[in-house]
Design a protein around this nucleic acid. Structure first.
Length: 585
RNA sequence: GGGGCCGUAGCUCAGCUGGUUAGAGCGCUGGCCUGUCACGCCAGAGGUCGCGGGUUCGAGCCCCGUCGGCCCCGCCA
């Protein structure tokens, strides 16, 4: 027998219990004659004691132990002698008095300290991910992920959702993200694509009459990476029939209430707040604002017109131009260099510049203040709800650009000024996304969400005349400033779906060629349906308070899409290429 | 495609204005040690300063290129 208990069970077992535990050697503290082995398994650590005077043979064996060797220890659990208790660690009041020790495997000296808090470069940890995994930090994340998916499975199945697997080898749909392609051997020159999401299949499942479906689905997108983006990631993919948007959002709220109750002990108030896309953009410059702090963006275009500051007056006078501002609480204390850095950062986001006014005990101060008449100064102060100690910052640009920049700046300021209350949860819906937007490069409308999204019924009348003003039945769920999920009610009527394909510049022939199978399916009695996909990795990341999605994945890839452990991607040999009918240029 | 930060011992880092033999802590190897828990003490080994080129009497340090890691913009329906 290798073991009778996981280590953490010993923390509460009675003194005198005979046990066998197995795990890795965290460290050996050899006092010559008295020897302590700290043994670690995934559940925790326990001190094992060997006394040479009691068992010289055991001590001989134990002397050779090195870090990360795998051992099985037999002995009796005992309370530590008075004065030797370590109250800072779990199980620090007890130890195993060893009567038997088996070496199950030796180990090379690890390339970095395992299971300690020392910060080691991520690339080294990724190269030896199996060693990094032994640390409590990663074990905790993987355990949590398992518990989270289990809860989601249980919750969804209890709500009569069926879990269905959809294909990974599927058809490329070149609308949206770049596909990962898989060459076909049997049909040379043709390719499968790995799914960006099971979108089309889940709609087909609805036509197929499953009514309620979910899947913990791996998805693939061949786009550049970020801290919260990996080329393959996991979505909780959900679709349901015969539900209005509001009913469906309610079902999703049930799920999130369950998640927060279970893992945070937190009762979320219902229904979740709903912000329209329009409101979110106007007030926060983002369709996924972090509302753990307020800091709204303020429109001062009308005041800007009344100044003599030409940057403001010219932009404010132009048709699409706007001048908007933000409060930087406590920002008046920033040094000249701090303000320069803030300006540079804002410019890195695409701003032409950053105007600023300090509010301190002596009043307003700024290089541009001389362009502001006295009455405008006081109106501005009032409009911005400025308080003493604030720095007021302003961006003048086209509305879309200004809002985007200020949205980013708003988050930047919140981090810099430490305005985010990490104990709070900000979870709400953004609804009424526009259905379409104009793509300048391709000179056509394209779907904001995806082309299967249903238009808002109230806007069907304007669909033909002003497509970009049509709202949709799409919704996003935003958690602490991150989009953790999104979805929509779909078009279940073929005629409406055809109209939308037409509006995004697809001819009927193209639409039939790419999505003919879906259109065909819609024509065979598709029920009203809609759904959502939840970013499982992002959700786990936020719930665990981690900064990167990589921290909650077992084997993540680097920013260049490489797996440092397996060294994928890698060249393949010429025979493999020949079989596939491929030739490298 | 673009902007920024980083790369020195196994790990984490220091290394001045370009100057002689590149350092520290941890780890590693050997020895000592009966209550440690970051055990302690003694001794020792360990370096292509990411790689390539250039400037210079002389480069870890300056310049150019390149590779790799991270953050961001674009991109991600």
């Amino acid at each position: 027998m290798y073991r009778s208990h996981p280590v953490s069970d010993l923390y509460s077992c009675p003194s005198g219990t005979t046990v066998t535990v197995a795990g890795w050697v965290q460290t050996v503290r050899d006092h010559g004659g008295l020897l302590f082995i700290e043994l670690r398994d995934r559940s925790g650590r326990i001190q094992c004691v060997i006394d040479a005077s009691a068992n010289a043979t055991l001590e001989e064996v134990a002397k050779d132990l090195r870090d990360e060797w795998v051992i099985s220890v037999h002995g009796v659990v005992g309370l530590r002698p008075e004065g030797t208790v370590n109250a800072t660690i779990p199980g620090g009041d007890r130890e195993i008095r060893v009567t038997g020790l088996t070496i199950l495997n030796s180990a090379k000296t690890p390339p970095f300290p395992v299971g300690t808090t020392e910060e080691v470069s991520e690339s080294l940890r990724l190269t030896h991910r199996y060693l990094d995994m032994r640390s409590p930090r990663l074990l905790e994340a993987l355990k949590f992920r398992s518990e989270l998916t289990t809860l989601i499975r249980n919750h969804m199945t209890s709500q009569q959702f069926w879990e269905v697997e959809t294909p990974l080898l599927t058809r490329s749909t070149p609308e949206g993200a770049r596909d990962f392609l898989v060459p076909s051997r049997l049909e040379k020159g043709s390719f499968y694509a790995l799914p960006q999401s099971p979108q089309l299949f889940k709609q087909l499942l609805m036509v197929g009459g499953l009514e309620r479906y979910f899947q913990i689905a791996r998805c693939f997108r061949d786009e550049d990476l970020r801290a919260d983006r990996q080329p393959e990631f996991t979505q909780v993919d959900i679709e349901a029939s015969f539900l209005t948007r509001d009913k469906f959002l309610g079902i999703m709220e049930d799920l999130f209430c369950d998640i927060f109750r279970t893992f945070r002990g937190e009762t979320l108030s219902r229904p979740f707040m709903r912000l329209t896309y329009e409101e979110a953009m106007e007030r926060y410059g983002s369709d996924k604002p972090d509302l753990r702090f307020d800091l709204p963006i303020v429109d001062i275009s009308d005041l800007a017109k009344k100044t003599t500051f030409s940057v403001f007056t010219s932009v404010a006078a132009s048709e699409k131009g706007t001048v908007r501002g933000l409060r930087y609480p406590g920002g008046a204390a920033l040094s000249r260099k701090d303000v320069e850095d803030l300006t540079a950062w804002t410019q890195s986001q695409g701003a032409k510049g950053l105007a600023w006014i300090k509010v301190d005990s002596s009043g307003l101060s700024s290089p541009i203040l001389k362009f502001f008449p006295e009455d405008i100064r006081s109106s501005l102060r009032e409009r911005m709800a400025a308080e003493e100690g604030d720095l007021l910052v302003f961006v003048a640009d086209e509305k879309k650009t200004a809002l985007k920049i200020l949205g980013a700046l708003r988050t930047h300021i919140a981090h810099q000024a430490d305005l985010i209350d990490k104990t709070r949860t900000s979870l709400f819906w953004v609804v009424d996304f526009p259905l379409l937007e104009w793509n300048h490069d391709e000179k056509r409308h394209e779907a904001v969400h995806h082309p299967f999204t249903a238009p808002h019924p109230e806007d069907l009348g304007v669909l033909a005349d002003t497509p970009e003003k049509t709202r949709s039945l799409a919704y996003d769920l935003v958690l602490n400033g991150t989009e953790v999920g999104g979805g929509s009610i779909r078009n279940h009527e073929i005629e409406l779906q055809r109209r939308i394909f037409n509006l995004i510049g697809l001819t009927q022939e193209e639409a039939d060629r790419r999505f003919g199978f879906l259109l065909e399916a819609l024509s065979f009695g598709a029920p009203p349906h809609g759904g959502m996909a939840i970013g499982l990795d992002r959700l786990a990341m936020i719930l665990l308070g981690r900064d990167s999605i990589r921290d909650v994945m077992a084997f993540p890839k680097t920013q260049k899409g490489a797996c440092l452990l397996t060294e994928a991607p890698a060249p393949v040999d010429s025979i493999q290429l020949r079989d596939l009918g491929l030739k490298l240029s």
